[in-house]
Protein backbone atom coordinates (compact mmCIF):
# COMPACT_ATOMS: atom_id res chain seq x y z
CA UNK A 1 0.00 0.00 0.00
CA UNK A 2 1.23 3.48 -0.81
CA UNK A 3 1.29 5.88 2.08
CA UNK A 4 0.66 9.56 1.51
CA UNK A 5 3.79 11.67 1.27
CA UNK A 6 3.26 13.26 4.66
CA UNK A 7 3.23 9.89 6.38
CA UNK A 8 6.79 9.28 5.27
CA UNK A 9 8.16 12.46 6.76
CA UNK A 10 6.45 13.22 10.04
CA UNK A 11 9.01 11.57 12.25
CA UNK A 12 11.75 13.85 13.42
CA UNK A 13 15.11 12.31 12.58
CA UNK A 14 17.38 15.09 13.83
CA UNK A 15 19.01 15.18 17.21
CA UNK A 16 17.72 18.21 19.04
CA UNK A 17 18.01 19.48 22.58
CA UNK A 18 15.61 21.31 24.88
CA UNK A 19 17.79 23.12 27.39
CA UNK A 20 18.47 26.40 29.17
CA UNK A 21 21.18 28.17 27.16
CA UNK A 22 23.35 30.64 29.06
CA UNK A 23 23.59 34.22 27.80
CA UNK A 24 27.25 35.00 27.11
CA UNK A 25 26.91 38.37 25.41
CA UNK A 26 24.62 40.73 23.54
CA UNK A 27 27.08 42.10 20.99
CA UNK A 28 25.79 45.27 19.35
CA UNK A 29 26.11 45.15 15.57
CA UNK A 30 24.18 48.25 14.56
CA UNK A 31 21.51 50.51 16.00
CA UNK A 32 19.00 48.18 17.68
CA UNK A 33 20.73 45.12 16.19
CA UNK A 34 22.50 42.53 18.29
CA UNK A 35 24.26 39.23 18.05
CA UNK A 36 23.15 37.09 21.00
CA UNK A 37 25.85 34.64 21.98
CA UNK A 38 24.56 31.62 23.89
CA UNK A 39 26.45 28.84 25.63
CA UNK A 40 24.85 25.47 24.85
CA UNK A 41 27.51 22.91 23.89
CA UNK A 42 25.20 20.20 22.43
CA UNK A 43 23.51 22.71 20.14
CA UNK A 44 26.79 24.38 19.17
CA UNK A 45 28.25 20.97 18.28
CA UNK A 46 25.43 19.94 15.97
CA UNK A 47 24.22 23.18 14.39
CA UNK A 48 24.34 23.17 10.59
CA UNK A 49 24.01 26.30 8.40
CA UNK A 50 20.36 27.03 7.69
CA UNK A 51 19.14 25.45 10.90
CA UNK A 52 17.45 27.41 13.64
CA UNK A 53 16.63 27.39 17.34
CA UNK A 54 13.40 28.23 19.17
CA UNK A 55 14.05 30.74 21.94
CA UNK A 56 11.93 31.53 24.98
CA UNK A 57 13.45 34.24 27.14
CA UNK A 58 10.36 34.58 29.36
CA UNK A 59 7.56 32.57 30.95
CA UNK A 60 4.93 35.10 30.00
CA UNK A 61 1.52 34.44 28.47
CA UNK A 62 1.95 37.48 26.22
CA UNK A 63 4.01 37.17 24.14
CA UNK A 64 3.08 33.50 24.15
CA UNK A 65 4.97 31.78 21.36
CA UNK A 66 8.65 31.09 21.29
CA UNK A 67 10.39 32.52 18.25
CA UNK A 68 12.61 30.83 15.67
CA UNK A 69 16.08 32.29 15.10
CA UNK A 70 18.48 31.19 12.39
CA UNK A 71 21.90 30.27 13.66
CA UNK A 72 24.50 32.88 12.69
CA UNK A 73 27.59 31.00 13.80
CA UNK A 74 28.53 28.11 16.04
CA UNK A 75 31.78 27.26 17.75
CA UNK A 76 31.77 23.65 18.94
CA UNK A 77 35.12 24.09 20.71
CA UNK A 78 33.79 26.86 22.93
CA UNK A 79 30.30 25.39 23.13
CA UNK A 80 28.68 28.61 21.93
CA UNK A 81 26.44 29.63 19.08
CA UNK A 82 24.83 32.91 18.20
CA UNK A 83 21.74 34.37 16.63
CA UNK A 84 21.03 37.82 15.25
CA UNK A 85 18.12 39.90 16.51
CA UNK A 86 16.68 43.39 16.06
CA UNK A 87 14.89 45.02 18.97
CA UNK A 88 11.50 45.76 17.48
CA UNK A 89 8.80 43.94 19.47
CA UNK A 90 7.76 43.00 22.99
CA UNK A 91 9.47 39.64 22.47
CA UNK A 92 12.80 41.07 21.33
CA UNK A 93 12.71 43.64 24.14
CA UNK A 94 12.47 40.75 26.62
CA UNK A 95 15.31 38.98 24.82
CA UNK A 96 17.47 42.11 24.95
CA UNK A 97 16.87 42.42 28.71
CA UNK A 98 18.29 38.99 29.52
CA UNK A 99 21.38 39.57 31.70
CA UNK A 100 24.73 37.95 31.01
CA UNK A 101 24.78 34.61 32.82
CA UNK A 102 21.00 34.18 32.81
CA UNK A 103 19.37 31.47 30.73
CA UNK A 104 17.12 31.39 27.69
CA UNK A 105 15.08 28.22 27.22
CA UNK A 106 16.20 26.88 23.86
CA UNK A 107 15.21 24.05 21.53
CA UNK A 108 17.54 23.15 18.71
CA UNK A 109 19.17 22.74 16.36
CA UNK A 110 16.07 22.38 14.21
CA UNK A 111 15.13 21.91 10.59
CA UNK A 112 16.91 21.30 7.32
CA UNK A 113 20.12 23.00 6.22
CA UNK A 114 21.89 24.27 3.12
CA UNK A 115 23.67 21.48 1.27
CA UNK A 116 26.65 22.53 -0.86
CA UNK A 117 26.20 21.63 -4.53
CA UNK A 118 29.58 20.03 -5.16
CA UNK A 119 29.32 20.20 -8.94
CA UNK A 120 29.03 24.00 -8.88
CA UNK A 121 31.96 26.38 -9.28
CA UNK A 122 30.12 29.56 -8.38
CA UNK A 123 28.18 29.43 -5.09
CA UNK A 124 25.80 32.38 -5.17
CA UNK A 125 24.30 33.34 -1.81
CA UNK A 126 21.34 35.71 -2.07
CA UNK A 127 20.63 37.50 1.20
CA UNK A 128 17.60 39.74 1.66
CA UNK A 129 17.72 41.96 4.79
CA UNK A 130 17.64 39.84 7.94
CA UNK A 131 18.00 36.71 5.78
CA UNK A 132 21.76 37.17 5.93
CA UNK A 133 22.67 35.31 9.17
CA UNK A 134 22.13 31.69 8.03
CA UNK A 135 23.90 32.47 4.77
CA UNK A 136 26.86 33.90 6.66
CA UNK A 137 27.01 30.66 8.68
CA UNK A 138 26.83 28.70 5.42
CA UNK A 139 29.56 30.79 3.75
CA UNK A 140 31.85 30.43 6.74
CA UNK A 141 31.53 26.64 6.67
CA UNK A 142 31.68 26.41 2.88
CA UNK A 143 34.72 28.63 2.32
CA UNK A 144 37.36 26.26 3.76
CA UNK A 145 36.03 23.40 1.62
CA UNK A 146 36.30 25.16 -1.74
CA UNK A 147 38.50 23.64 -4.44
CA UNK A 148 40.62 25.69 -6.81
CA UNK A 149 38.37 27.56 -9.23
CA UNK A 150 35.37 27.55 -6.90
CA UNK A 151 34.15 30.82 -5.45
CA UNK A 152 31.46 32.30 -3.22
CA UNK A 153 29.53 35.34 -4.42
CA UNK A 154 27.29 37.18 -1.98
CA UNK A 155 24.36 39.16 -3.36
CA UNK A 156 23.00 41.24 -0.49
CA UNK A 157 19.85 43.32 -0.70
CA UNK A 158 17.77 45.47 1.61
CA UNK A 159 15.37 48.38 1.42
CA UNK A 160 17.98 50.82 2.74
CA UNK A 161 21.69 50.86 3.48
CA UNK A 162 21.20 50.63 7.26
CA UNK A 163 19.17 47.43 6.88
CA UNK A 164 22.00 45.52 5.22
CA UNK A 165 23.37 42.95 7.64
CA UNK A 166 26.88 41.59 8.00
CA UNK A 167 28.59 42.92 4.85
CA UNK A 168 31.99 43.33 6.52
CA UNK A 169 31.88 39.80 7.84
CA UNK A 170 31.07 38.34 4.44
CA UNK A 171 34.01 40.28 3.03
CA UNK A 172 36.26 39.13 5.88
CA UNK A 173 35.59 35.55 4.77
CA UNK A 174 37.11 36.43 1.41
CA UNK A 175 33.82 36.33 -0.47
CA UNK A 176 32.95 38.78 -3.20
CA UNK A 177 29.97 40.91 -2.14
CA UNK A 178 27.59 42.79 -4.43
CA UNK A 179 24.91 45.00 -2.99
CA UNK A 180 21.49 46.25 -3.99
CA UNK A 181 19.22 48.65 -2.11
CA UNK A 182 15.69 49.59 -3.06
CA UNK A 183 16.44 53.30 -2.59
CA UNK A 184 19.96 53.22 -4.06
CA UNK A 185 21.53 54.32 -0.77
CA UNK A 186 24.22 51.66 -1.24
CA UNK A 187 25.29 49.69 -4.32
CA UNK A 188 22.91 49.00 -7.19
CA UNK A 189 19.55 50.79 -7.00
CA UNK A 190 16.94 48.08 -7.32
CA UNK A 191 16.29 44.55 -6.21
CA UNK A 192 18.89 41.96 -5.32
CA UNK A 193 17.05 39.63 -7.70
CA UNK A 194 18.11 41.95 -10.56
CA UNK A 195 21.72 41.23 -9.57
CA UNK A 196 21.02 37.51 -9.61
CA UNK A 197 19.42 37.73 -13.04
CA UNK A 198 22.52 39.52 -14.29
CA UNK A 199 24.96 37.06 -12.72
CA UNK A 200 23.17 34.04 -14.16
CA UNK A 201 22.93 35.60 -17.63
CA UNK A 202 26.47 34.66 -18.54
CA UNK A 203 26.59 31.00 -17.64
CA UNK A 204 24.07 29.42 -15.29
CA UNK A 205 25.47 25.90 -15.68
CA UNK A 206 28.33 26.32 -13.20
CA UNK A 207 26.24 28.12 -10.56
CA UNK A 208 24.34 27.01 -7.46
CA UNK A 209 22.10 29.44 -5.62
CA UNK A 210 21.29 29.54 -1.90
CA UNK A 211 18.86 32.20 -0.69
CA UNK A 212 17.24 33.53 2.47
CA UNK A 213 15.07 36.61 2.81
CA UNK A 214 11.47 37.72 2.43
CA UNK A 215 9.31 35.08 0.76
CA UNK A 216 8.46 37.42 -2.13
CA UNK A 217 12.18 37.71 -2.89
CA UNK A 218 12.62 33.95 -2.61
CA UNK A 219 9.82 33.36 -5.05
CA UNK A 220 11.60 35.52 -7.64
CA UNK A 221 14.94 33.85 -6.89
CA UNK A 222 13.37 30.42 -7.33
CA UNK A 223 11.74 31.48 -10.57
CA UNK A 224 14.98 32.86 -12.04
CA UNK A 225 16.92 29.74 -11.09
CA UNK A 226 14.35 27.31 -12.42
CA UNK A 227 14.20 29.25 -15.69
CA UNK A 228 17.98 29.14 -16.10
CA UNK A 229 18.51 25.64 -14.80
CA UNK A 230 20.60 26.62 -11.78
CA UNK A 231 20.11 24.44 -8.68
CA UNK A 232 18.57 26.54 -5.94
CA UNK A 233 17.86 26.15 -2.23
CA UNK A 234 15.71 28.69 -0.39
CA UNK A 235 15.12 29.16 3.33
CA UNK A 236 11.49 30.08 3.92
CA UNK A 237 9.93 32.16 6.66
CA UNK A 238 6.62 31.08 8.19
CA UNK A 239 4.75 31.73 11.44
CA UNK A 240 5.99 28.99 13.73
CA UNK A 241 4.23 28.36 17.05
CA UNK A 242 6.02 25.12 17.95
CA UNK A 243 9.10 24.57 15.77
CA UNK A 244 8.80 20.83 16.47
CA UNK A 245 6.63 19.64 13.64
CA UNK A 246 3.45 19.19 15.64
CA UNK A 247 1.22 22.22 15.18
CA UNK A 248 1.30 22.33 11.34
CA UNK A 249 1.14 26.12 11.50
CA UNK A 250 4.16 26.68 9.26
CA UNK A 251 2.67 24.94 6.23
CA UNK A 252 4.53 25.22 2.93
CA UNK A 253 2.92 23.99 -0.28
CA UNK A 254 5.01 21.45 -2.19
CA UNK A 255 4.58 19.31 -5.27
CA UNK A 256 4.29 15.58 -4.59
CA UNK A 257 5.84 12.86 -6.78
CA UNK A 258 2.39 11.75 -7.96
CA UNK A 259 1.71 15.20 -9.45
CA UNK A 260 -0.39 16.52 -6.59
CA UNK A 261 0.29 19.06 -3.88
CA UNK A 262 0.62 18.74 -0.09
CA UNK A 263 1.72 20.89 2.83
CA UNK A 264 5.10 20.29 4.38
CA UNK A 265 6.38 21.96 7.54
CA UNK A 266 8.88 24.81 7.38
CA UNK A 267 10.14 23.72 10.80
CA UNK A 268 10.99 20.08 10.01
CA UNK A 269 11.19 19.45 6.25
CA UNK A 270 12.31 23.09 5.94
CA UNK A 271 13.20 25.84 6.44
CA UNK A 272 15.57 25.09 3.52
CA UNK A 273 13.75 23.65 0.51
CA UNK A 274 14.87 22.84 -3.01
CA UNK A 275 13.25 25.45 -5.24
CA UNK A 276 11.82 22.90 -7.68
CA UNK A 277 9.81 21.32 -4.88
CA UNK A 278 7.89 24.47 -3.93
CA UNK A 279 4.50 25.54 -5.21
CA UNK A 280 4.00 29.30 -4.92
CA UNK A 281 0.45 30.64 -4.67
Amino acid sequence: MTLPVAAQVHFVPMTRYELPAVVVEHRQRATNQYELILHAPPIAARAAPGQFVMLRPMRTHAPLWRRPYSILRANPDKGVFSVFYSVQSAFTELLALKPIGSTVQTLGPLGSYFVPVRTARRHILVAGGVGAPPLYFFASRLMPTLQAGEQILILAGARRRDLLVGLDEFRALGAEVRIATDDGSHGYKGYVTDLLQHVLETDPTDAAVYACGPNRMLQVVAHICLERGAPCQVSLDAPMPCGMGVCLGCAVKVATPDGGVWYKRACVEGPVFRAEELVWD
Binding site: P4, A6, A7, A62, P239, G249, A251, Y263
Partner: peptide, 30 residues
Protein backbone atom coordinates in the same frame (compact mmCIF):
# COMPACT_ATOMS: atom_id res chain seq x y z
CA UNK B 1 -5.62 12.10 4.02
CA UNK B 2 -6.58 15.76 4.42
CA UNK B 3 -4.34 18.51 3.13
CA UNK B 4 -5.67 21.18 5.48
CA UNK B 5 -6.17 24.89 4.92
CA UNK B 6 -3.89 27.28 3.04
CA UNK B 7 -1.38 29.32 5.05
CA UNK B 8 -1.20 31.50 7.02
CA UNK B 9 -2.94 29.11 9.38
CA UNK B 10 -1.90 30.51 12.73
CA UNK B 11 -1.76 33.91 14.39
CA UNK B 12 -0.55 34.90 17.83
CA UNK B 13 -3.06 36.87 19.90
CA UNK B 14 -2.92 38.32 23.43
CA UNK B 15 -2.17 35.33 25.69
CA UNK B 16 -3.39 33.01 22.99
CA UNK B 17 -3.40 32.03 19.38
CA UNK B 18 -5.77 31.39 16.52
CA UNK B 19 -5.42 28.32 14.36
CA UNK B 20 -7.13 27.21 11.20
CA UNK B 21 -5.08 24.13 10.36
CA UNK B 22 -8.10 22.39 8.88
CA UNK B 23 -7.40 18.90 10.23
CA UNK B 24 -4.36 18.21 8.06
CA UNK B 25 -3.57 14.54 8.62
CA UNK B 26 -2.36 11.48 6.78
CA UNK B 27 -5.60 9.57 7.23
CA UNK B 28 -6.54 6.84 9.63
CA UNK B 29 -4.89 4.02 7.64
CA UNK B 30 -1.46 5.66 7.69
Amino acid sequence: PRMGNPPPRVAETPAGMLNAIGLQNDGVDA
